[in-house]
Design a protein around this nucleic acid. Structure first.
Lengths: 95, 95
DNA sequence: ATCAGTGTAACGTATGCGGTTACAGATCAC
DNA sequence: GTGATCTGTAACCGCATACGTTACACTGAT
């Protein structure tokens, strides 16, 4: 009942932060004080948003670190839910 | 402006899930299909809630995986915010 | 052709989650 | 006391991932 295939946060980062400001990956990486490779990995969905990166993004773009973390959570959980059935977990609550 | 020192999710897990049901750590670990050590690490704040563990908890206790992830995020970010100033990040937005 | 920007492979490090085994301490039944 | 159970945790393993540097190939603009 949630969303379909949430985009990885890097996609949002590129579209809503880098593009509007006309920033190159290199420039943004320098501002964030991370390597170009690290930022590139996020932008292309090969790496996630770490708590530290969420804070860096909040500092650079004036957004909330929490929102970046939540986007990462949505992305992670969506991919994890597909493996629900593979987990042999016993119900404990409304048993 | 947020909360003070959010508890690690393991504390909530123990108080709100294990205790009310009178579950031992051993029993809960078996139900979750993880090792006793893994659950113990979470309960005692030495490990975080992974996306997979969040789904396991949701299956066992009928809670939402998202809520567990959010609690972990709150805990992580609170500890990360203390290092804000140590990050040499340049402002890019309202520059 | 030259140069800026980009993605990414290859290598390293650190951290974190997960497992097993084994131990010490606490608690309870007997 | 003796034994059983539960617990925390140390010591070890494997694996994944975040981050770094360096180096390469590709693209597009000048």
């Amino acid at each position: 009942m949630k969303m379909h295939n949430p985009p990885h946060p890097g996609e949002i980062l590129r579209e809503l932060c880098l593009k509007p400001l006309g920033l190159t990956v290199t420039q943004a990486a320098e501002a964030l004080d991370v390597s170009r490779k690290t930022l590139s990995g996020i932008l292309n969905g090969r790496a996630g948003i770490s708590p530290e990166m969420a804070v860096r993004l909040s500092l650079a773009f004036g957004t909330s670190a929490e929102s970046w973390m939540n986007q990462q959570t949505q992305y992670d959980l969506w991919h994890m839910e597909r493996r629900r059935k593979k987990l042999h977990v016993a119900k404990l609550s409304a048993a």
